[in-house]
Design a protein around this nucleic acid. Structure first.
Lengths: 369, 369
DNA sequence: TGGGAAGTTGGAAACGTTTCCAGACACGAC
DNA sequence: GTCGTGTCTGGAAACGTTTCCAACTTCCCA
């Protein structure tokens, strides 16, 4: 009913007391019970609610945290964002989503924009990192927590994972299953994940335990199903005469799904003829048939930890420069499971319990509306 | 290098001119070239960048828009958010993500919180709507655009779709393919989507063209793969002796995937024996094998339109109360496609071109990092 | 009864910005 | 030479809040 929003001054006038007392009364600090009573009455009467901007100006605090990534639609980032929001909201912080763009220069630009002071901190997960960006982060006027590379040595809070090691886990898993002719299906090498995962594969296949086995790598044009399909088709066509791979390690779940399609196209079975692993442990992989063995990089946990670091920095008295690593975790599902006698002639596997429980249950209610 | 952020006052002092002139010079309004030159120099020298809070206080404008939904991890909402961000960012607006909670009362609470003035507008997609919520939205101190129910008659901007009509499209598509024994696989009826879609199925199967055919409905516990699997298993077991359905209309993509699993479990083929349709046209459905015929409800477009409405309301001089409906759009894929001779004995379909192009291509680079 | 302490209150400043208003100045026209 | 017009500049107010500081009251104890 009140035409416009009521201000503290109006509440003070209505209560017939000073502005200072009004503020104190509403905060319950050093005000007599009578005063509190009186001011509260006036406040509710006018439907007063404090103005966030005025408050921020005075307190030099926005109660906002930015979350910046290259692509806010990427399921991995969505998981992070959800976790970040869950941690920050109870502490009274709002989450502002931002995009970094693809390049480090646009990311530098974004970090620089922090100087206008619209957030109290930023959680940043850059696609690529260079010295200029690191320097910009160091000089940022508010704390920046980086999800990605370890930057503790530069005095920057960071949360990292070990995707290279994760690829290693996938490789060892396949070796343990008796697979001997591995192919690594990677995405573009000039990306941070592509580079790291390649390094992981190279390291794992140079290890002693792998001595004497065959390991090849192919590079898909993109981290997509289509690219994985195309690259695997080419791979299988080329290796037709020679020794066909009996396992494919894909650099992410979408590539893995593309690979599975290509394998099946040739009348081969997954996992009997070719086992396939993915990475990121996305819902798509969990739901796919066969459900995907995948290396989880703990996106949710990384988001959660980054948010907790932010809270410590902003509310608490923590010093910047801490670092947490979230270990990769292999989740074994049908795409590498020991062969099971299929009920039908080919290809079809029993729907495993893996789907619809555990991880998938988190997604209850999703996908509609 | 500057210890703290420079303020406009400091720039003014440095330039040796008044505060007012400094502000004008930086905005290029009514200042002499010499003044502009002088102030610019001082500003860059000090690394000045305007304070967002001070600016907001004076201008009564936050350059922020809230996007509020029940579950920010839901792919449908993620699509909306991405579109909203894409529209708003070029206009200089930041996006703040918020959660409504499951109930209308918590949603009312959220809308009420707008009175602290931390955003210039809100885009709200509530799970449920009641009169109290509508009233609260009407009285909100900033424009609220609703994605969901049509509320133009209440003077509220809204963007809706027609999920009931979408179910109708799916039904007619299946009838056109010669399917005659349809089952509707719905989620909980006490949700807005569940209720609307049920209405759509009932209407479609009461239509003339459907006269004489069989139509049943089953309700899954949830809008999830697991619930769809369980419900369809029960359905198929019950109809074993009698006439088995030859088509399943699922209320969303996850239910549809569950249904496909259950159908295959019994050694039946999709789409040959049972055709299946989903709804929401999610990436999961596009990637699944068989790729899913699904009714798109245009999440991206609804988000885009809502954001454009916001821009008109906040930057322009638009009046509240407009309404846009985004029509449902059936996307036909393998799960209902005319049967194709499979290369192997059973079940396997050729990977169709549908995957990896068009819709999937949007997702380039996703799913990793 | 005087005085200090403790508790309450109001005035005023401050946060950083934009903009109204009035004054100063230059310039051209009469 | 004067006046009017137009351009530019600076002072000051305003946005809404919190908090420092001083002043006032009350109360208790010496």
């Amino acid at each position: 009913m009140t035409s416009s929003r009521a201000t503290l001054i109006q509440v003070a006038q209505r209560a017939g007391v000073s502005l200072a007392s009004t503020s104190r009364a509403l905060h319950g600090t050093g005000a007599s019970p009578a005063m509190v009573e009186r001011v509260r009455a006036a406040a509710t009467e006018l439907g007063y609610s404090p103005d966030a901007i005025g408050r921020s100006l005075r307190l030099k605090k926005t109660f906002q945290v930015a979350f910046a990534v290259a692509d806010i639609g990427n399921p991995v980032y969505v998981e992070m964002m959800t976790a970040i929001h869950e941690v920050l909201a109870p502490h009274g912080y709002r989450v502002v989503v931002m995009t970094t763009g693809d390049t480090t220069t646009s990311t530098v630009e974004l970090v620089r924009s922090l100087s206008s002071g619209f957030v109290d901190a930023m959680i940043l997960s850059p696609l690529r990192t260079d010295d200029e960006l690191v320097e910009e982060i160091r000089q940022a006027p508010v704390p920046v927590v980086v999800i990605g590379r370890t930057l503790a040595d530069r005095g920057i809070d960071s949360v990292s994972t070990d995707s290279a090691g994760g690829i290693g886990e996938a490789v060892r898993h396949l070796l343990g299953l008796g697979r001997r002719r591995l192919v690594f299906l990677n995405g573009p090498l000039d990306t941070t994940p592509g580079e790291a995962r390649q390094r992981g594969f190279d390291a794992a296949t140079r290890a002693d335990e792998f001595a004497g086995e065959r390991a090849d790598a192919v590079v898909a044009a993109d981290f997509t199903v289509a690219a994985g399909l195309a690259a695997t088709r080419a791979l299988l066509a080329a290796s037709d005469g020679g020794a066909r791979p009996d396992a494919i390690v894909a650099a992410n779940d979408l590539l893995a799904i593309g690979a599975i399609r290509a394998v099946r196209e040739r009348g081969l079975s997954v996992p009997d003829d070719v086992a396939v692993t993915g990475m990121d442990d996305t819902e798509i992989g969990r739901v796919f048939q066969p459900s995907l063995t995948s290396v989880s990089l703990g996106s949710t946990e990384r988001g959660r930890i980054a948010a907790e670091l932010v809270v410590d920095l902003v509310d608490g008295d923590a010093q910047a420069g801490r670092h947490t690593a979230v270990g990769p975790r292999l989740v074994v599902r049908e795409s590498t499971a020991a062969a099971v006698a299929a009920p039908e002639a080919s290809g079809q596997h029993q729907a495993s319990d893996a789907v619809g429980h555990g991880a998938t249950a988190e997604a209850a209610g999703r996908g509609t509306r």
